[in-house]
Nucleic acid binder design. Structure first.
Lengths: 136, 136
DNA sequence: GTAGTTGCAAAGGCTTTGCACGACG
DNA sequence: CGTCGTGCAAAGCCTTTGCAACTAC
């Protein structure tokens, strides 16, 4: 009755990609993952990286983020949490505050939708950029 | 001290574009706006539409949305509110529940960022798609 | 053995941009 | 009249895809 889960093979490429996302807490883009994994697997292709990111997020092993300013990013932290994007340098970081489940009930009531989840992005300026800005 | 506001000219293209966004509550994409405005101004180009959307959102006359699934959308409703995207048909609608300002304070505390705003997207299934699904 | 995967390269979708002409103020 | 805006077309960026060879199970 549920979604047909296709069985994933454990390939070297897949392992390195998953590993690389887990290793970094900086929510890398597909291209960043590609460049890093290529240090270990020089023959991997960008297409493979994209295909794996698709499959891995489809099966819930990574989370795909689409912050306002640009390309997709990937997050290995699976527990519910929010994100913040620095509007100056573009970095994306976790915001570890508890998810507000009540928001979804409110939204369901207000819209008539069946709500499955929500995504919350804060925008702001990171401490480093703030310091740089203060120093002119 | 504030951002240098450049003065906008009132061109027919700009007027029709702004008008078209205001007229529809469906958060049209750039291409949808283009196709609609072209009925009145057949010689307008897609490039002009994009340039105006850029300028208009830069000056706060429209709001630019970037829902997870695909291209930018535009919203003429300027008061703070949230959005929901139907994961089946892709439509985007307003969610008129009050913004939670306390979220930003929490996020600032948790991250050290200076928070300027936040974007909240709900995902779910709209009543129409739900009905269609129930009817097999 | 055979489905799922990979590399490579080409194609695709959306958005941005260079340029010369046009029009708003 | 000087800018700012426009149309057109080309370029750009990120992502997806077709295909034949390959490999995990």
């Amino acid at each position: 009755m549920a979604a047909p889960v296709k069985k994933l093979r454990v390939t070297r490429q897949r392992q390195f990609i998953l590993d690389e996302i887990g290793r970094s807490s900086e929510h890398p883009t597909a291209d960043e993952i590609y460049r890093r994994v290529r240090r270990k697997l020089p023959r991997i292709s960008l297409g493979t990286v994209y295909r794996n990111l698709e499959v891995l997020s489809e099966s819930g092993l990574v989370r795909r983020l689409t912050p306002g300013g640009g390309q997709m990013r990937f997050d290995a932290r699976l527990s519910p949490h929010y994100h913040v994007r620095c509007t100056v340098c573009g970095r994306v970081e976790d915001v570890l505050v508890p998810e507000r489940a009540d928001l979804e009930q409110e939204a369901a009531r207000a819209t008539g939708y069946e709500i499955d989840g929500h995504t919350l992005f804060f925008e702001g300026i990171c401490p480093q950029c703030r310091a740089r800005r203060a120093a002119h």
